[in-house]
């Protein structure tokens, strides 16, 4: 495989968005994908997915699979299966909703349960435009960030288009160079780049988080 080919190869990463109902997970993704915002709330049904190609500053091109989960209680049982093969878990809360922040620990717990320390966890406090209704301070979030060992935390507003790009940029920088266990090159099974190991007994792929 030539160096050029190597550059040509797009790494694929799975990012799962978690968090209580209506904290703005879908809005974050929509803002990132289409740069739009909708005031109307339409609860996500089950798990949605979207694909996005991202060009990083170091000339790498990566392909992001964004899995948008539903916050509603009745869809909870679906989510663990989606966390288990994700590289990144973006755990969201609504800064105007204390409860959604308190529930972060539960979400993070879910991630740890599935992925141990292998997944990159990112904390996102959304709806920053509603500062006057703030119930969660940035300090509280920082405290939690330190406590749970997340990669970083950030406050965003999808409505005001604040920090959304930065969030994804930072995620992109955090991603390991190769998604180990995937895409082991020129073997005949190159089609396997997409294989997701869902066996539990086997050792989960030893992901190295080499950045940030």
């Amino acid at each position: 495989m030539s160096a050029r080919d190597k550059l040509n190869i797009m790494r694929k990463y799975k990012i799962v968005f978690l968090g209580d109902q209506s904290v703005g997970k879908t809005s974050l993704i929509t803002r990132f994908m289409y740069d739009t915002f909708d005031d109307q709330y339409a609860a996500t049904i089950g798990i949605d997915f979207l694909l996005k190609t991202m060009y990083l500053e170091d000339n790498r091109t990566i392909r992001l699979q964004l899995w948008d989960t539903a916050g509603q209680e009745r869809f909870r049982s679906l989510i663990p299966s989606y966390i288990r093969d994700s590289h990144v878990a973006v755990v969201c809360y609504d800064i105007t909703n204390k409860k959604s922040f308190q529930n972060l620990e539960k979400w993070i717990n879910d991630v740890r349960l599935e992925r141990g320390d292998d997944a990159i966890i990112v904390l996102v406090g959304n709806k920053l435009d509603l500062k006057n209704k703030r119930q969660v301070t940035a300090e509280e979030c920082e405290e939690l960030h330190k406590k749970v060992g997340s990669k970083f935390y950030i406050e965003t507003s999808t409505k005001a288009n604040h920090n959304v790009k930065l969030l994804f940029k930072k995620i992109g920088q955090c991603l390991p160079d190769s998604s180990d266990g995937e895409g082991n090159g020129d073997s005949q099974n190159a089609g396997n780049t997409e294989t997701i190991d869902i066996t539990v007994n086997q050792n989960p792929e030893g992901q190295k988080s080499g950045c940030c």
Binding site: I47, F49, L51, Q65, S81, Y82, R84, D85, E194, I198
Partner: peptide, 21 residues
């Protein structure tokens, strides 16, 4: 339930990847 959930999530992911491919 978990096994079925994982398998279906796997299928879901395959659907997405395959469609993309």
């Amino acid at each position: 339930v978990r096994v079925i959930g994982d398998l279906l999530a796997y299928i879901h992911s395959v659907v997405v990847s395959e469609s993309e491919t």
